[in-house]
Design a protein around this nucleic acid. Structure first.
Lengths: 116, 116
DNA sequence: ACAGCTACCATGCGACGCATGGATCCCGGC
DNA sequence: GCCGGGATCCATGCGTCGCATGGTAGCTGT
């Protein structure tokens, strides 16, 4: 693949942070998978397809960061709603600190604090 | 590995951005590998070991984003100095835009722009 | 009854950070 | 003269996770 491919760069950047963006969205209430895809896609290049979200949600469930409930849909197949657990809130809070430090670190390099 | 391990989260976050932090450091002049390890380690959890940097530098070289020159060291084995190419500067500029958008996206989720 | 949308899911690949281990060169102590 | 230790380089293999792919099922409109 083209080394300078911008899509690839984004793909790599999403790693690690994507899961916590999902958790962050869930703070505001229960959501189902397809809805999360739409919400995340709305913000510049965060998610492109369901193929990304569903495995991610399965992992979060396995780790006990979210719980799920089946509900009927007004039109269409039933939906699996995801809800934050206490552990999930905690993990999100921890991540937020990590993210802040990391973000500031990257920004400091890009800003070029060390000009010759 | 412990799912909530903070180190692991950092490891994932570094993906994609680390290479460009290296390029950013190189804007200020030539550097050699060991020096880069020290410079990056100085900023909170960007790099932990040489095992991270050398394969990365080899990749950057293969992609033509950096050039190298051998120089003698005042004490110790010779050093391979890395220098940005025009392509490297270009890639760094492109990345900076991507990063800004991505960073703002993540921040908007973490800030919780969608309260119920 | 069939097309098309919504919604779910499993599987496999590829990229890349990093742990590990090794090679080489120089210097200083004994 | 020898040996230990630090500086510096490098190659190899693993684990993680985003995502492409492809598959199932329910509902609605024509």
């Amino acid at each position: 693949m083209d080394p300078g491919d911008a899509r690839n760069v984004l793909t790599q950047m999403r790693r690690g942070t994507l899961a916590y963006c999902v958790l962050a969205v869930l703070r505001s209430g229960e959501r189902y998978g397809f809805e999360l895809v739409r919400l995340l896609s709305a913000v510049d290049g965060m998610v492109t397809s369901e193929g990304t979200i569903y495995p991610l949600l399965a992992r979060l469930r396995r780790q006990g960061l979210v719980e799920t409930t089946w509900r009927e849909s007004p039109a269409g197949p039933p939906r699996r709603y995801y809800r934050l657990t206490r552990l999930g809130r905690r993990a999100l809070a921890d991540f937020t600190e990590e993210w802040t430090r990391f973000r500031d670190g990257v920004d400091s390099f890009l800003a070029g604090q060390t000009e010759s």
